Simulated assay, not measured.
Amino acid sequence: MSQEVFIVLETIVMLFLVILSGLFLRKGKVLDKNSTTRLSKFVVDVAFPALVFTSMLESIDPQILAQSWYFPLAGIAILILSMIVAYILTPLFKIDTYPQRGSAAFSMGTPNWLFIPLPVAAALYGARGETIVLLVNAGALVAFWSVGVWMVRGYKPDLAMLRSIVLNPGLAATVLGIVVALVFPGAEVLLDPDVTDLTVFTGILSVVVQAIEFLGDVTVPLSMVVTGALLGGAGTKNLFGRGIIVISIFRLLLFPAVLIGLFYGASVFGLHFDRAVSMTLIIISAMPIAVTCSVVAEKYEGDEALVSKGIFITTLMSVLTVPLVVLLVQFLGL
């Protein structure tokens, strides 16, 4: 087993086990519907924006952005194009009613673009891989909190909907983090726990930013616990229903196959990409549904049962599909 395959497997299995813990907590009545709803709101409105803001400070830099400006665009493209294609195709599989259609398209188009790929890319390609994932994250967040929320809500654009999207804490944190990072280059120093060389004001600011980072660190485990709890509340009936299988095939096989085809076609015509770039983007496209999709669907009155089941099944199936995608990329020499 190659190092790439092993790292991916290890991370996915860890993710799946934490989702199971949330399922058992709900079944054991440690969490009920009200506490799960409160937790999901906390994740969406507080923890995730905190994570987003500090990740922008860490990844966005004027010089790096000038050299790698296309990575945020890749993040936007991967999510928006996938969601639009999924939204168009879902009626063919009789997924055509609100809120199911929007939630299904949102799930199909939203891979776990950060929490699994970040440690994998960092382990494989060091700082280069980490930078790629974080810059893709900047664009993906914009798509997630705008088009993604619109998909889940399933409404035609109106002033109230646009206002709710613009004022969304996650999108606001993304924009604020990018602006602060660009206006104040070197702002990532505030994340350094050693404040002895800083001025009093900067030291206090650093402690505040580190507190925000610490708060954001709970996003990943809490999102997984909430996902399991939502699944426990929805039940496991129709866990392998047609809708879930369609979502899983699109999320795990179709979209990465399209991206592999694009990279392979480019290589045929003599356009070769850095291995770290091609492998990282393909790994992102092959990820299971992002765990935060369930808490967003729950908050914005989407079909959280469908999304939670989709996360559970795609995470389970990705133990097989993601290594196969990695092996295919290695075979094609991309």
Rank of each mutant, 00 (worst) to 15 (best):
V209R: 04
I84P: 00
R163Q: 12
V166Y: 09
G216N: 09
V189Q: 06
D32A: 07
G129A: 12
L191N: 08
D217Y: 10
G235V: 03
G216P: 11
N34V: 13
G109H: 01
G265C: 11
V52Y: 11
M14E: 14
A138W: 04
V258Q: 06
E10V: 15
L23G: 02
V307W: 11
I7A: 11
T292W: 14
L281T: 12
M83H: 04
L9D: 07
T174H: 03
F255S: 02
N137W: 11
A86C: 03
G170M: 02
V291W: 03
A74S: 12
L230I: 00
F24M: 15
E304M: 05
M279T: 15
S267Q: 15
S107P: 07
L39D: 01
L171N: 01
R38E: 08
L79H: 12
T37N: 15
L320V: 14
S40R: 00
V30T: 08
A143D: 03
P49Q: 06
V44C: 05
L324K: 10
M83E: 03
I244S: 02
V149P: 05
N112S: 13
E10C: 14
F331L: 06
R163L: 07
P91S: 05
K94S: 08
G177M: 04
T314W: 03
S21Y: 09
R242N: 11
A276N: 14
I7L: 11
V133Y: 01
V149T: 15
I7Q: 09
N112Q: 11
R128N: 10
D194A: 08
L254T: 02
D96F: 06
Q210T: 07
S35W: 08
K156A: 11
A173I: 03
V166H: 02
L65W: 08
A305P: 06
G243I: 01
D194S: 03
I289G: 07
V18K: 02
N238T: 00
L118C: 05
P111D: 01
A257Y: 07
F184A: 06
K41E: 12
F263Y: 11
L92Q: 05
V133G: 06
V325T: 12
D274V: 11
K27Y: 08
V175Y: 02
F71E: 05
G265L: 14
A105S: 15
G170E: 08
P185M: 02
P323N: 09
K33E: 13
V52K: 07
V18A: 05
D96N: 15
E213Q: 13
A138V: 14
A286F: 10
V319H: 04
G102Y: 09
F24Q: 09
E4D: 12
V218Q: 01
L253Y: 02
M1L: 13
M56H: 05
L25K: 03
D96E: 13
G310W: 06
R38W: 03
L134C: 07
F6I: 15
I283S: 05
